[in-house]
Design a protein around this nucleic acid. Structure first.
Length: 468
DNA sequence: GCATGATCATGC
DNA sequence: GCATGATCATGC
């Protein structure tokens, strides 16, 4: 089936919203019905299965397109690529995207010959027709999956600079002969994820090194596709009102932007930064330095710098004592006992957090008798692959213990495993339901303070950029 | 001294 | 009321 314009395609595709595919075919606007024929149906697959099962079903049974793996976009006449993205409901009822959106698989030997502008990524994924649906575990009854939201996302109009930088980061690594060291944490929006569960089998040659590397596909990182869903879900609320105009903000590399906003606070103590930025600064508030970070970055309380939000960049404050020591571990979000047992490592919250870019903002005590810390610069950081693998061991151990109902023997800080599990709640009465139906004290993953210490020890001395 | 468990102010 | 982003207090 071909469409004359993107508006027509979207109009047709939105028949799916709020329906299942089996229902939607009964509500197709009459003008489209003559567009496909019985002959098309004869070519459909009989069975759909595997990870792309729903996508294949959708493509054939609703859009009447034969499944293919061509490098052209699915609706090549409009340069629009069809992508299905599964949703899940969290315990608190929030709807969110289940996993990263996998795009084209690539070969290391091919991608090094491309430039961003001539890349397969650009020619295939500039415009995405996104179909967000509720995934049902262990079901292949794709015709009865409920579809929540359908919209077109113009990847390259929205985020082209950051995507280009990410693409270049990935390809530069392959060109350095480091394809085996690729990590989703290297990049902000676009990721290079491993493809193929069986790692032995998916090993590939890379052009500038003899070391075999796991096959990779480009993907929109989990946090990015989540943020796209949030944006489109909000757009849905005012689809019939005027669309807001693009603001045309000038894009800058993240480090330049951070220097621009943060250099002025270098060496200044918390209380004074609070005065300058008009922020509360209560010595009893444990988060008082963390609370300074948003105003320092020039963000309103409810404002998120687009790349921060979309790329899920984590901004964390780190206190350094007068003797150079980092005393405290770094906390992450609560472990949702009932959710974690359904997750795989690469779909997990902790993985998403650890493969983010981090901005560490340092606050250092100048003298051990001081009661305030001064801003001591920042670093942009992401976790090396080897450490990510260690974190995976901690995560899997934790998930397995939760599955077995063991809440007493999580990996602790003295195991020196980069990360550990520890309580995190309002008080001892902060409980959370478990998959066993019991209630246990709220916990979360922490990065060990020793690990943060290494990052502090290895940082290059902070130098404010000279302003022209 | 430091690992571990407990707890806190704040914003939404 | 609870998640967030942390630090505090203790006991070994």
């Amino acid at each position: 089936m071909e469409f004359k314009s993107r508006e027509k395609l979207l109009y047709y595709a939105r028949t799916l919203e709020g329906r299942t595919i089996n229902d939607a075919v009964n509500f197709i606007p009459p003008e489209f019905i003559s567009e496909f024929t019985k002959a098309d149906e004869a070519e459909y697959k009989i069975e759909y299965k595997g990870k792309g099962g729903f996508g294949d079903f959708l493509e054939e049974r609703f859009f009447h397109k034969k499944n293919d793996s061509e490098s052209r976009p699915d609706f090549s006449e409009l340069a629009i690529e069809l992508k299905a993205s599964p949703l899940k409901k969290l315990q608190d009822g929030t709807v969110t995207v289940k996993e990263r959106l996998v795009l084209n698989h690539f070969r290391f030997v091919d991608i090094v010959k491309e430039s961003f502008d001539t890349s397969k990524f650009v020619s295939k994924n500039a415009h995405l027709l996104l179909v967000f649906y509720f995934y049902m575990k262990n079901s292949v009854d794709y015709g009865n999956f409920k579809i929540d939201l359908v919209d077109i996302w113009d990847t390259l109009l929205r985020d082209s600079k950051q995507l280009e930088e990410d693409w270049n980061t990935i390809v530069a690594k392959v060109r350095r002969g480091e394809a085996h060291l690729l990590s989703e944490g290297d990049t902000v929006l676009l990721g290079a994820c491993t493809k193929g569960g069986n790692k032995e089998k998916s090993m590939q040659k890379q052009p500038y090194s003899d070391i075999p590397a796991p096959g990779r596909a480009l993907c929109l990182k989990s946090s990015y596709i989540k943020s796209i869903y949030k944006t489109l879900a909000a757009d849905r609320e005012n689809r019939h009102s005027e669309k807001s105009l693009q603001t045309g903000k000038v894009w800058k590399p993240l480090d330049v932007l951070l220097h621009e906003r943060l250099d002025r606070y270098f060496g200044i103590c918390g209380a004074k930064i609070a005065r300058i930025t008009g922020t509360k600064f209560n010595p009893k508030d444990k988060s008082r330095y963390a609370r300074l970070m948003k105003p320092m970055l020039g963000l309103q309380k409810d404002e998120n710098y687009h790349e921060f939000e979309a790329g899920n960049i984590q901004v964390k404050s780190v206190r350094i004592e007068a003797n150079g020591k980092v005393n405290e571990a770094m906390s992450f979000r609560n472990i949702y006992f009932k959710d974690i047992v359904t997750e795989d490592w690469e779909d997990s919250l902790f993985y998403e957090e650890l493969t983010s870019k981090f901005i560490f903002m340092f606050f250092r005590k100048k003298d051990k008798d001081d009661d305030d810390y001064v801003f001591d610069g920042f670093v942009l950081w992401n976790m090396p692959v080897a450490d990510l693998e260690t974190a995976q061991v901690v995560w899997e151990d934790t998930r397995n213990k939760i599955m077995n109902g063991d809440y007493k023997h999580f990996i602790n800080a003295s195991k020196k495993r980069i990360a550990h599990v520890r309580p995190k709640g309002r008080n001892g009465a902060s409980l959370m339901e478990t998959p066993q139906g019991t209630f246990e004290k709220k916990k979360c993953f922490w990065l060990n303070n020793e690990y943060i210490q290494e990052i502090v020890d290895n940082r290059t001395p902070f130098r404010p950029l000279v302003q022209e």
